Structure formats: structure tokens, C-alpha cells
Computed example of a mutant assay.
Amino acid sequence: MSETEKPRQKLRTGFTTGACATAAAKAALVSIITQKKIESVEILLPKEKKITINIASCKFESGSARCSVIKDGGDDPDVTHGAEIIVDLEITKNAGSIEIDGGTGVGRVTKPGLGLEIGTAAINPTPKKMITENLAVTGKNILDTSGISVLVSVPKGEEIAQKTDNPRLGIIGGISILGTTGIVIPYSTASFAASIRQSLDVTVAMKGDAVVLTTGGRSEEFSRREIDLPDHCFVQMGDFAGYTIQQCAKKGIRKAHVAGFIGKLAKISAGVKQTHVKGSKVDMAFLGEMAKRCGAASSTLDRIKAANTARHVQEIITEDKVPGFFLSICNEVHKQMTAHSEGKVEIEVILFDFDGSILGRFPQQGI
């Protein structure tokens, strides 16, 4: 092991924005009941699990309180990590009711397909249920004669939301309060898969039957120049090519434009369904065989065999002017994606270079 390498340690779990809001709400209610500043609370998560969360700030009066929690995503790379989730809680005259809404920095729903009513705050059903259940237990005596109003806000939510899919999904003005378990599992693929399904659900709900599946932000940017479809039809599939096209078939999507760069598309063409850099490597032997079928010289094949990356292979193919190679990549991706969708989705594949020019497209459209 080199001096710069560190031994692997167990990754630390975190908690969701929904768990943060729940903890802040419970702390606010407890502070009203006890008239004491609350430093931590234990909350009940779905499936009867309990966790203790620290309270960052707590101010209270006789019938209202404001408490906050700092979002801790654990070792998961999460744009909401470190965000302050604030709850303003008030005791109301509406006996037995628990009302939950979003304030500053919590997005508002403007498109269908998210499982939330248009115009409402983007607080998902599980977090709402968590807040309600925890407050119902803690405030049982209060609810006999009064109600509870909860307002969730995130001071930097609108800024954070620009780094998420919320604007594309029609969630305007802030982040979503999310979480199905309350716990964030580090580097979990589950949240990304859920995001893909949600994006496709929005497309379907908006009566769309065609999508543009890209491997990331840059390929999406280049795709927008080529394909005239509404924002909600662009879905970043990341490394989950096989899964995404399967979901397209399941949800009745008619056509999928699949766009990306040589690295991801080379992996898909070789039959890799999950293309994360740590989970699979570009198969240089496979690319060499494709180049051979396109009539590449032996010297070119030797260079490909010794290449570092797929991008390096792209440079070699371009320099040595191997005809039809990029079209062949697109053709193979088309075959793989068609197989994953069981032939239920019409597929077009576009391979971009890193400046946004099209290297290959299948089926061909006269380029």
C-alpha cells in the first residue's frame, strides 16, 4: 500500500432531509411542552427503527417554536449535506389536525407524475408520514384539544436545488424533502434508480412518449442541440443504461434517444448494463475486434490494445481514419439496448465527441 493510500473503513450512514424535518418538528413540539431548549431527539423511522438526531438550534415560546437540524449525509455524496432544515411549529385551534407545508427553500410541484398534487410543497409522502406519526405520539394530549402546524424551510434550498433534477421535474423554488427509510446508505444505487423512475413518471404524466437518455450533463447539453423535446423528456441515466431502458419499456415509452461519449457507449456496446468506472472497465480487446472488422491496420490494432481509455481509442481511430468504427459502436449499443427493452422501445443512438460534434448515429440520418 502506498503512503497516499488509506485503509478502507466502513462507510458512515447519514439521515435524509425527511428525517431532519421530523427531528426538528419533534424538538419544536417538545420544547413547547417542556419550555426547555432541546439538544437532541429520538425519532421513529419507518419499519419501527429509531435514531437520535442532534438539534442545531432551538427557540420556543408558549405556543410556537423554531428548531433546526443540519443535514448529515454520512459518506454519501449528497448536495444537501450540510444544509440547515428548519421547522416552525405552532399550536393551532384546529383540534386533532397536523398540517404540514413547505416554506422558503422547499420546492413547489408544478408538473404531474411525482405522486404529489400540483401546487403543493415537495414534501414526499414518507417524510410527511414520519412527521405526523412522531408528532401524534409526542403531542397526544395537545391534539385532544388543539392542532399542530408545521412549516419546513431550507434557507439555501433554492440554491441547492439547481444542482438537482428538481427544475427539470417541475419542482420550483427549492429542494424536495425526501426519504423512504430516513437513513442514507452511502453510495447506494437505490436513490439514483428512484430518480430515474421518477423522471420517467413525470414524462409519462406529461403525455410524453419519447425520452432522451444521456450519460451525464454534457451529453444532455449536446443532445438538446439535436433533439427538440421538452425539458421533462431529458433523463440522465448515468451508469444505469440497462435499468433505464427496461424502465422505459415497463412504463410504455415509445422511443428513446440514447446519447453519450465513447467511454460509456463502448461499455454498453460490450454488453455492460451498469457502466460505473469502478464497476467495469472498457474492453480494449472488444474495441480492437470492432476496429478489425472495420478494416483497421495491424498497427492501429496494436495501438488500441495498448490504449489507456476509450477516449484514447477515439483519438487513434480518428488519427488513423478507420471507416465506420463509430457507427459500429452505435449499432452495437442499439442492439444491446433493444435487447434490454425486449424490443418494446424504438431506439436511436448518438455518439458525441467531447466538443459536441456527432461521431456516429444509428440508425443513420444522412450525417
Rank of each mutant, 00 (worst) to 15 (best):
M1Y: 05
T4L: 12
E5S: 13
E5G: 08
R8D: 05
Q9I: 10
R12Y: 00
T16D: 06
T17N: 10
G18P: 10
A21N: 07
A23L: 03
A24E: 03
A25P: 12
V30A: 08
I32G: 02
T34C: 04
K36M: 08
I38R: 04
K50R: 14
N54I: 07
E61R: 08
R66G: 01
S68V: 03
D72L: 11
G73H: 05
D75Y: 09
H81M: 06
E84R: 09
D88S: 14
D88R: 11
D88T: 13
L89D: 09
I91E: 14
T92F: 07
T92Q: 10
S97M: 13
E99F: 14
E99H: 14
I100P: 07
G103R: 08
V109P: 09
T110R: 04
G115F: 00
L116D: 04
L116S: 04
E117W: 00
E117N: 13
T120D: 03
T126G: 04
T126D: 02
K128S: 01
K129T: 01
M130R: 01
I131H: 10
A136C: 00
N141C: 01
L143Q: 07
S149M: 09
V150H: 03
V154I: 13
K156E: 15
G157T: 09
I160D: 02
N166Y: 12
R168M: 10
R168I: 10
G170Y: 01
G173H: 01
G174C: 02
I175T: 01
S176H: 02
P186Q: 10
P186N: 08
A190D: 14
A190N: 13
S191M: 07
A194K: 14
Q198A: 14
Q198V: 03
S199L: 05
D201Q: 14
V202T: 00
M206D: 11
G208K: 09
V211C: 08
G216I: 12
S219R: 11
E221R: 11
S223I: 05
R225L: 12
E226G: 04
D228K: 06
Q236W: 02
D239W: 10
F240Y: 15
A241R: 11
G242Y: 10
I245A: 11
C248G: 06
K250L: 15
K251T: 04
K255R: 15
K255V: 09
A256P: 03
A256S: 13
H257V: 13
G260F: 05
G260V: 05
G263N: 10
K264R: 12
K264Y: 08
L265T: 06
S269W: 04
G271K: 07
V272S: 02
K273A: 13
H276F: 06
S280R: 05
V282G: 10
D283A: 07
M284T: 06
C294F: 08
G295I: 02
A296H: 12
A307V: 02
T309A: 06
T309D: 07
H312P: 01
H312Q: 11
I316A: 03
T318Q: 08
V322T: 02
F325Y: 10
F326H: 03
I329H: 01
K335A: 06
H340G: 00
E342T: 14
V349R: 03
L351K: 08
F352V: 02
I358F: 07
G360V: 00
G360H: 00
F362Y: 15
P363C: 10
Q364P: 12
Q365I: 12
I367S: 14
I367M: 14
